[in-house]
Design a binder for these strands. Structure first.
Lengths: 166, 166
DNA sequence: ACCTGAACACCGTTCAAGT
DNA sequence: ACCTGAACACCGTTCAAGT
């Protein structure tokens, strides 16, 4: 009963900071994320954050990594095309949840589709390129009406390459 | 001889402001673009800019439009695929020249590829979607190694749709 | 009526001073 | 040695005061 419900009493950590930062971004957008506001949210002096992150840019990098980690949950059954489509849609959802300049950075860090493309029959280098292309498209089209259409055309194009190898 | 070489003596206008803003963005990136620095560059009080643009966001919108206008220069000969590729590469160049969050906004405003896709045989609605997809990809992949690869796969996918209609 | 620039409410980060 | 918070050099924008 003596335990404080107040989460702000817990010790600061990179994890807690990133969690709070994502909450701010989800609530009010990336522009609303400032070191000062983040510190206030955590009931901490602004300078305390600098013990855990070199500067704001480093925090943003870690944030992009966290978003990328949300994406790469695997999905192991169905055709390669179906698996890829699911993954890409999950990426879009993650990008829409965390809007702003985070999407391109997160897309660069995510590599969840590469093994699927390799299993489909593409050589390692091309699997990489194809996945980068899919993520770049997703980052650019996350909020667009043409998202579904573009994914299908991109997958069609990739399928032609897979078929050529089979 | 009495003419002043100093451009800052000329009267302020939306055009002059946008020109200076693009110069700042090209030189030091979008983050370096502040109303105060822009005003200083133009040898003008910060508040004078607000006679021409409601606020910074309006200026950024106009900037995206200016970048989009750079892209839509037409190129009228060769196959539709060749024309489209040329246009998309020009868009990438424009996005690389003006980095930052400008690319997605500019991509949304550019519609130079739609007539080419219609001439290729796609119905108006689909031509729109296909061009949006190409621009979204370009905005997301402008700096990526997978740009050329992704464009070709996307064009392959679109070509399948064109072939189906022919 | 128009223009000016001081002022407000913010930023990210440094660094001297205090413990 | 560590932590603190005042201070620096900025922001975008409002608005009272002056012309």
């Amino acid at each position: 009963m003596a335990r404080r419900a107040d989460a702000s009493a817990e010790r600061l950590s990179r994890e807690r900071i990133l969690e709070a930062a994502l909450a701010v971004v989800e609530a009010d957008g990336l522009d609303a994320l400032s070191m000062r506001r983040l510190a206030q949210q955590l009931d901490v002096w602004p300078m305390s954050l600098y013990r855990y992150f070199q500067d704001k840019e480093a925090l943003l990098d870690a944030l992009a990594e966290a978003v990328a980690d949300e994406i790469t949950l695997p999905s192991a059954n169905g055709s390669w095309r179906r698996q890829l489509r699911e993954l890409v849609e999950r990426a879009r959802d993650a990008f829409e949840r965390h809007p702003g300049a985070l999407a391109p950075a997160a897309a660069r860090l995510s590599d969840g589709g590469v093994p699927i493309l390799e299993a489909a029959g593409l050589p390692a280098g091309e699997a990489d390129e194809a996945w980068q292309a899919l993520m770049a498209f997703t980052a650019g089209a996350a909020g667009s009406d043409a998202f579904e259409y573009g994914v299908e055309r991109l997958l069609d194009g990739i399928e032609l390459r897979v078929a050529r190898r089979a």
